[in-house]
Design a protein around this nucleic acid. Structure first.
Lengths: 334, 334
DNA sequence: TTTAGCACTCTTTACTATTGTTTGCTAACT
DNA sequence: AGTTAGCAAACAATAGTAAAGAGTGCTAAA
């Protein structure tokens, strides 16, 4: 375990580096960090912290930079909640009070808010459909060969899709089908729309395969399809000094351009609400040089979407986590 | 007017520069461009082309680079249609034959296809809603205080939105409202949903304002709201040499991040189908250093969305325009 | 009108010297 | 034993210089 002064030194280095993006020298820590000792003493402490893997050097005579282990220790043990300014509180409140009719929009707005307040790039994804419980299904005829299906789930998600037929269908047919679907699916998780249901319907109904098949197929497609990924503030990252390296900038754009990586990243958190992944801790190779903080938006244990912040490993974890905690509290109050 | 050899020289320089991204020297044109003369002669021609504004130099003793006037002349007068390879034809066909139920999806797929074939970044926007003709409106009750409104237009666009009420509404109320709305709006452009309609409904209907108001407000919101902008292949641009300049890369990300600029860009074309904007010709300040080619997807004069390619001024106009023309033909066949 | 030849311009690259920052170590001090 | 002052060594960053290379413009001859 680290003794008290080592903790202080590590914390000072992490925070200094987060602020300046420059390797931190022993001299820089002699003032304004409550360490009443000379730079030589700090140098000794730094050398030991480096030996234990908490710090790195960029070259033999450079100042110190936190290692991933250093950041992890900082996040786990040394992090203080940061106060949120009055302006920020006002801004967050006004954003979250926007009246929204669809919960996916709320996730978007939350992502946008977090990005604006933290000045990092945010991504969001809607709630996972497959394990939600179907509360109601409505079929609406739109012309003679087109229909809309609307699925309502327990979390308030409304999912609609258009289905086209190769032959004319009647209002009567739609109504019967609607009854059958509801009968079988109400109270079931959405993923129930699958093979067994298909077989059941073919058995029960006397309609042409041209009517039932498109419905089943389109519904299956809808529940399988990737949730909408929403990106906010990509340009914000480009103001950070680490993005002066073309390679980093290019990697970053590549990540944001690859929906699978982003979806994977947002879906891989296992903690209750906030997850922090530092560099190599990320499961996705593309993210090894970045840090990610994700935030699951839940109400009564129900998934309402996930928001992620992507930034440099030198991320202001304290700020990001404090903002997320505050927003989480606000959302729960609603 | 330019004489025949000057045209050839200009064309050779533009095409060489598009290929190499390096200033073109007089020597480089003596081979492989059908100009049977020495580098000195070409130098004389280049000097005159520069005097007339078709070429630029990066410094006194550098090779030549096309000016915006030069690119414009090339696009207007010297452009040859490029052959599309068999693989490309196959790829395009397979992509466009994907069965889609919503026309916005077709626009997305088209944008994706153009980006993949040309290797440039593409953006797309759905059809402009406001001037489409309403064919049918359906109201569907989803629970006691929630309803979905579905608007069908003449172009096949299906626009749906959720409306929430502060008090319980009955199926009967919904049906009456639905009848009234259709009665007033069928055959009218979508933008008819506005003040006069609002007044009419308040006069005609005896329902509480709590029922009518949310419907009108949400419908107005839907038709006003920005169309969905879809971005494809942002990372493709980062492989181009001009994006080695951090400033350019940053500008580019900023543009793509600013939906208003992209929407503006896509909506500002006035030509029938394909529009080319070179550098300063762009109406948006942010785009002054880029070139944009837009393509309006229309069937029977009806707007089905617009796709845009953003790239360096050194864009392969010939390729981009050929691909767009081919895709346009394919789409019209469908 | 075309072209060969050459001086001149400017970029690019490599090399060198200088300056400044920061460390690690040693020896002295508390 | 822990702390500190002092100093040599390592290295980055910057500026300056020189040499090489690419390309033009101009002149004069074909």
């Amino acid at each position: 375990m680290l003794d008290d002064r080592k903790k202080k030194v590590l914390q000072a280095i992490v925070e200094e580096y987060i602020n300046t993006a420059e390797p931190v020298s022993s001299n820089a820590l002699t003032t304004n960090h409550g360490l009443n000792c000379s730079s030589a003493t700090i140098r000794n402490e730094m050398a030991e912290l480096e030996k234990n893997g908490y710090l790195d050097k960029t070259h033999t005579s450079s100042g110190r930079v936190p290692s991933e282990k250093g950041y992890r220790y900082y996040v786990d043990e040394l992090l203080n909640d940061k106060d949120i300014s009055l302006e920020e509180i006002k801004y967050i409140s006004s954003k979250l009070e926007t009246k929204v009719n669809e919960i996916e929009d709320l996730t978007k707005i939350t992502a946008n808010t977090i990005s604006e307040v933290t000045h990092y790039t945010a991504v969001s994804i809607g709630p996972k459909t497959s394990n939600q419980i179907i509360e109601d299904i409505k079929f609406v005829l739109l012309g003679s060969r087109m229909m809309m299906a609307v699925i309502l789930t327990d979390t308030g998600l409304v999912k609609e899709t258009i289905i086209k037929f190769d032959e004319d269908v009647t209002q009567k047919q739609i109504e019967t089908m609607n009854y059958m679907f509801n009968n079988k699916l109400k109270g079931q998780p959405i993923e129930t729309i699958d093979r067994p249901l298909e077989d059941y319907l073919y058995d029960e109904m006397t309609y042409s395969v041209n009517v039932i098949k498109p419905v089943i197929e389109q519904l299956k497609k809808v529940i399988q399809e990737d949730e909408n990924i929403y990106l906010e503030g990509a340009n914000k990252s480009f103001d950070l000094p680490e993005f002066n390296s073309l390679e980093v900038a290019k990697n970053f754009v590549n990540i944001l351009d690859t929906k699978e990586v982003v979806a994977d990243m947002l879906n891989s958190g296992f903690a209750e609400d906030i997850n922090v992944y530092i560099g190599d801790e990320n499961k996705q190779d593309e993210l090894k040089d970045f840090s990610v903080v994700t935030f699951k938006h839940k109400v009564n244990g129900k998934d309402l979407g996930t928001i992620g912040i992507i930034g440099p490993k030198r991320m202001d974890y304290s700020k990001v986590i404090s903002v997320m905690k505050y927003i989480n509290k606000k959302l729960k109050e609603m």
